[in-house]
Design a protein around this nucleic acid. Structure first.
Length: 400
DNA sequence: TGTTGAATCCCAC
DNA sequence: CTAACGGTGGGATTCAACA
């Protein structure tokens, strides 16, 4: 098997960088967000939400991604907080991908701000992989006005680990012969796929560095982390990874929508209202993609952050708002013991392409009517925007 | 015995 | 005054029911 060269491209503080670039592009007056302590973060009014991205000056206050905004404000009272703008991020993500594809079509979007490239055989004559990465990094900065880190190695795992080294605006290599000096010295927390829970387990085993993990018998890892995770972590620690760079994205396994409520729900009627709104979103997305689902899951989180789920499998697949809504309501009733609810969510899984009339064979006439209603509403929304039509029960909520 | 579904847990971003 | 933790999606594990 041929040796590959893989790049992992990671936008530095993506949301914040993109917000800053967009403001400059729109001629917004004021200092560049990247030069002051600033973050992109959730809902300020509700005093909820977490830090999604931080500027380099904000980083100096020990503000970390994922922490509550309140906590970040305590660390830096002058922190500038900007609301996220997902649509804008999508535009920049697409621009980045288009630029990367000028170098190779072998690009795999990994998240909105990360991508893998298999550049095997695409490296210009006389250039090292590192120099090629530097060239791409420079192009991105020149044309798109934001910086990236690029990790360079022979597989996705090592490239990803490398892009996480010193930031911003850097290219790092992590070739197999560099694992010992560049990766094994890092704390276990830094290893890909080692989250909070796994880190605790590893620490309890006395393992401090990735090198420690590599040198522990894989069977011991398996017995403490489970077979799959034990093996996976062991392979990661040795830099072993054969995953190909996948250009075609496989079909979604599920579609979900959830909300943390501004006030805890105490009354089931309020729960129903939220479920209706979530059902609209989920079912709408299923229909957009000509997909139906067999399985509906309702998720709750109470004020103590205790999560619960209830799921059911339907006899025939659906993407009808009302079927999903009514199923979700039943699940919520089964699940709920009256504890105030902080978060409600719906997830649709066991998906199937919506192309067989066969699947509708067992639909009741009522279901047919509901399907027609949904597609009417869909077409009205696509003509006049998502907000033209409200369900009666949602309107009631608006009036309250 | 092995499989399936439900509930829970963990992961990344 | 004991604060304060989003939303989406993929996968593994555990256990009970069932064949």
């Amino acid at each position: 098997m041929k040796k590959r060269i893989i790049f992992h491209v990671d936008v530095n503080s993506a949301y914040l960088s993109w917000e800053a670039v967009e403001r400059i592009k729109n001629g917004v007056k004021g200092t560049d967000l990247r030069t002051i302590p600033s973050i992109i973060g959730g809902d300020m009014e509700k005093r909820r939400g977490v830090v999604l991205a931080k500027s380099t000056p904000a980083k100096k206050y020990n503000i970390i991604t994922g922490e509550p905004i309140q906590q970040a404000l305590q660390k830096c009272p002058d922190l500038v907080i900007v609301k996220p703008n997902h649509d804008m991020y999508c535009k920049y993500s697409k621009k980045l991908l288009a630029l990367l594809r000028e170098y190779t079509q072998h690009v795999e979007p990994f998240s909105i701000d990360e991508a893998f490239m298999d550049v095997t055989g695409k490296i210009p004559c006389g250039k090292t992989p590192r120099e090629f990465a530097l060239e791409i990094k420079k192009r991105i900065k020149r044309d798109l006005k934001f910086t990236v880190n690029i990790g360079v190695s022979t597989n996705k795992l090592l490239a990803k680990m490398a892009s996480d080294f010193k930031k911003p605006d850097k290219v790092h290599t992590l070739f197999p012969e560099e694992i010992e000096t560049k990766m094994w010295i890092l704390p276990v927390e830094e290893l890909f796929m080692v989250g909070k829970s796994t880190a605790k387990t590893l620490r309890n085993l006395g393992l401090k560095t990735i090198g420690d993990v590599a040198h522990l018998d894989v069977e011991i890892l398996k017995s403490h982390l489970g077979n799959k995770m034990g093996e996976h972590i062991h392979n990661n620690a040795w830099g072993i990874n054969d995953d190909p760079v996948e250009v075609e994205r496989p079909m979604n396994k599920g579609y979900g929508n959830s909300v943390t409520l501004s006030e805890d729900i105490r009354d089931i009627e309020d729960g129903y209202r939220v479920l209706l709104s979530l059902s609209e979103t989920v079912a709408g997305r299923l229909r957009e993609n000509d997909i139906k689902c067999y399985c509906i899951t309702v998720e709750t989180k109470d004020h103590k952050f205790i999560r619960q789920t209830r799921q059911t499998t339907l006899l025939n697949a659906t993407n009808t708002t009302n079927v999903i809504f009514e199923t979700a309501c039943k699940l919520l009733e089964e699940l709920w013991d009256g504890t105030p609810i902080r978060l409600l969510g719906i997830r649709a899984t066991k998906l199937t392409e919506d192309d067989y009339e066969q699947l509708s064979l067992f639909d009741t006439p009522k279901d047919k009517k509901l399907e027609k209603l949904d597609s009417m509403l869909d077409s009205l929304r696509s003509k006049f925007g998502d907000n033209v039509i409200y369900r009666a029960s949602l309107v009631k909520e608006e009036e309250n």
